[in-house]
């Protein structure tokens, strides 16, 4: 086994409620599993809690909690809680949203090598200058397209949903497919 593969296997992916919810709603959890097959996939306790709370209204969230390949991690060490509070100061207000992002960033930065997957722009900014690598839902979806698991039109539809959910993506409605075409991405040789 080559060195690169070993390090890839050691990289953990820590996922936020939003990206997981997007994959689950589109019934693409299998796709996500394939894309991340070389990695540990983790969610912090606060994300598991958000998912559990959402199950009543969004039944598809149950599939995330039931997925054996998604490990739930309790944040409780002093380092984890200190990191959690660092992000709480930037992201959390009176309505208590964004606690999931705080947990994801806190867990990812206290692991030796981890990638945080989240979409909130402020949360992405908050990770700058900290020891966290961040990827967005669309990054994983593009990887799925490259792997032949999804197509551009399918991903474009989900990208439009992300825009509607106010993630302020850098393209308008329908813009993802146009951009892929313009840049010649995913062209079959």
């Amino acid at each position: 086994m080559g060195r690169d593969i070993v390090s890839a296997l050691e990289t953990a992916y820590v996922l936020d409620t939003g990206p997981l919810s997007n994959f689950a709603q589109a019934q693409w959890l299998g796709v996500l599993k394939s894309v991340l097959k070389d990695h540990r996939v983790l969610i912090p306790d606060v994300v598991a809690h958000e998912l559990r709370n959402g199950c009543d209204r969004h039944h598809y969230l149950r599939s995330v909690l039931d997925a054996a390949w998604i490990e739930q991690v309790t944040l409780s060490s002093p380092e984890e809680l200190a990191a959690f509070v660092h992000y709480e100061r930037l992201l959390v207000g009176p309505d208590q949203r964004n606690l999931g992002e705080c947990g994801v960033l806190a867990l990812a930065e206290t692991l030796p090598s981890a990638v945080a997957v989240l979409d909130d722009r402020v949360a992405v900014e908050a990770a700058r200058g900290r020891s966290v690598t961040v990827r967005r839902t669309l990054g994983l979806l593009c990887e799925a397209i490259r792997a032949g698991l999804l197509t551009v039109p399918l991903v474009s539809a989900l990208a439009d949903d992300l825009i509607q959910n106010d993630y302020r993506l850098p393209f308008p409605h329908g813009g993802f497919a146009q951009w892929c075409e313009r840049e010649g991405l995913f062209d079959t040789p």
Partner: peptide
Amino acid sequence: RRVAAVELVAIAHELGHRVEWFVE
């Protein structure tokens, strides 16, 4: 026993503080 982040969030909410109040 250590407190989990998810528990601390619930405690903070119930007692009217931010989580930072307990940690920093």
